[in-house]
Amino acid sequence: MLGAYELSVLTLVGINVLLALGLNMITGFCGQISLGHAAFYGTGAYAAALASKSGAGFVPALAAGVACAAMLGVIVGLASLRVRADFLAIATMGVNFLFLGVVRQQDALGGELGISQIPGSGLGDFGFLLAVLGSAVALFVFSIYLKRSWMGFVFDSIADDEDTAQVLGIDVARFKLVAFALGTGAAGLAGGLYAHYAHIIVPDAFGFTVSITILAMVVVGGIGSNWGVLAAAVLLTLMPEALRVISDYKLLLYGGLVLLVMRVSPGGLAGLVRLALRPLRRAPRGVA
């Protein structure tokens, strides 16, 4: 059976998958650069932690986490309506820092020391793991469906050229807000789950480095690709754990990988796979 260590690693994998797929919806599907995803993760964690500590059950606490994160997400989404690309990237970074800056100073949120003694889920370790992995799988299935739906079609056009999308009757603003709400809601869920897993949350767990780690998973997997991002999230979470030797080099690895991918293959793993598969697809047509 699974030991405590394996349970712990798999739980982290599930949480990272939730985070990465959520970011993929915002940045990949809808083309809105978001470099502060950890702020929504943190919002979900804090909201769920506070709810749980004041007696709400596990599921209501998670719901609180999702709701608060999504609300912040919509606010940031509103910002994205006014600014584009580079500016948006910097603004979302700013949101991450503001989040930290505010949380660190509030005694009600535990200040620098964070919130501790967060109750467990009541499901037991294995049950909790199932809840986490179940959520991750559900989000993955939803992401695949989303991409194929008309909403995904609209997102494609917005990511490509939002002004032209407007001319075709698409309410770009509304769809962007939906993308933000979905992606940040997923982060909020991840945060709530994390709070109940770690039982302690501190501001540093939601800093800019975490945002970059999540971004690395999306980028390496291939921005916009569900399978790629899933694979990258799993790999990048497991690698430092599986190879203890490199765990001290984890951040160097993330940074280097992101750099390499952007420099060599901006389409990430998914891009490489597509390139590799291309000659295979051509063959049938050649056959008379």
Partner: peptide, 20 residues
């Protein structure tokens, strides 16, 4: 996409529709 203006009117409607 343009022809599907009816489908792209509201996000919820767009989410629930798959067929092109």
């Amino acid at each position: 996409l343009a022809a599907g203006a009816a489908r792209t009117r509201r996000p919820l409607g767009a989410l629930l529709a798959r067929d092109r």
